[in-house]
Design a protein around this nucleic acid. Structure first.
Lengths: 234, 234
DNA sequence: AAATTAACAATTGTCGACAATTTTGTTTTG
DNA sequence: CAAAACAAAATTGTCGACAATTGTTAATTT
């Protein structure tokens, strides 16, 4: 998954590096969701000046991982259920369109590569029955390829550059490395087929259903979790 | 149009104010599209330090009006035809979904207000036959109301906070304050009707067609312009 | 005692200076 | 003469200090 978790990153400046570190820390909850950010404290922790830290904070704000108020300060975004649903609605719109565009704009070679990737993932999944691996890495990998396949810079930047950090954060914080793998796999296969057939309308529809299904799956999981907690407390 | 061009803004800090000034300057082409940004020069022009200017630049980058490269500097984005089309494709996806959500989430009162706004615009249009006014202000106003009506913070932030500055920039730079007013008006009316009927599916479809029509209109206009230039040069 | 005000501490915003990098122009070399 | 290597100038990135604002605690007033 070099696209999301690259060992060799494009980070040039120290602000970039701190940005990446903080990004992981926030996504994984090491810096807790909803917590206030103290500039002096973090500057000390990362051994940089406040100016550099603020530069990093600006980038975190760009991908919606923190929120700033003038003269008050920054907070890590909090992971609410409403926020999660809003995020998935937005993904449905953007990735659906990206998928439609991919059906028009991907080269034959790109399509072939994606088919092979899916084949490889299917084997890996069977061998290790490593559901977690497939769901986490494979799913993201698939979506990334489709988005990039749209060849639409605006869409690519919005989804990959901004939304997906939030997506990963929600996945981590709500502990969603979970199943739906086999069904998702079939859905992926159908989507590639539609792209391969250059059927943009169908491709968009399938991608939207795929994401909507994922959203509903999560909704159910959260419902169950809530019910469980109610039962424990009585 | 207080939503886009508020007399009383929420700008608190000086970086905010400079950001707003530069935003207008870029949208209206006073700072030319594609031009390099010299931090020392602009800091002098706005009578602020470079740190403050860089804070403003970060916000401009957030709404995609400038692009930065590490150790190289910032450039104002350039208005290309491909960029324009990509922008409209993205709008189609996002505003379509926002419209679907608006059909679910707008209150009856909000819907009534929007109906009245449209009525007012229709009268203004007839009286002054001020096509330009309607197209420029009225159209943006309508779209804003729908987007806000989605009650989806993610969508609202993406569209209003980021995309629309670019939309205005393209409109300014390509000189698109032009007709399509009467047809657009009917389309607006149909969309409100669908929202009022709580028919999200139809509302989304109509909004997408509305934006796609606008995109095709622009495509044609650019085609003609290109043809004109070819004829002049021979 | 509760509420208001006043002083204080802490945090954020802004500034000017220095360090690192890129760009430009010149010189050198083949 | 073209290309590569070097030197100088300009630009960006980073730093620490000061100014302005906010949040908190203590004192005052009703």
């Amino acid at each position: 998954m070099h696209l999301i978790n690259p060992t060799k990153t494009t980070a040039i400046t120290t602000a970039d590096k701190v940005f990446e570190q903080m990004q992981y820390a926030i996504v994984e909850g090491e810096i807790p969701a909803g917590s206030k950010i103290s500039e002096p404290e973090l500057a000390k922790r990362y051994q940089i000046s406040r100016s550099t830290l603020r530069e990093a904070l600006n980038r975190l704000e760009k991908c919606h991982l923190i929120e700033r108020k003038a003269n008050v300060g920054s907070r890590v975004v909090s992971c609410t259920i409403e926020g999660l649903l809003e995020l998935y609605i937005t993904r449905e719109a953007l990735e659906g369109m990206a998928c439609r565009q991919a059906a028009s704009n991907m080269s034959d070679q790109e399509i072939d590569e994606m088919k092979e990737m899916l084949k490889a993932h299917s084997q890996t999944q069977e061998l290790k029955d490593g559901v977690a691996y497939y769901q986490e890495e494979g799913d993201l990998d698939f979506h990334y390829k489709v988005i990039l396949g749209s060849h639409n810079k605006q869409l690519i930047d919005l989804i990959c550059g901004q939304l997906y950090h939030l997506v990963r954060m929600y996945r981590c914080q709500f502990g969603m490395n979970s199943p739906r793998a086999s069904r998702a796999f079939n859905e992926h296969y159908q989507i590639i087929q539609a792209i391969s057939d250059r059927d943009g309308e169908l491709a968009e529809m399938l991608m939207r259903r795929h994401i909507a299904a994922s959203r509903k799956n999560i909704e159910n999981k959260i419902m169950q979790q809530a019910l469980l907690e109610v039962n424990e407390n009585k």
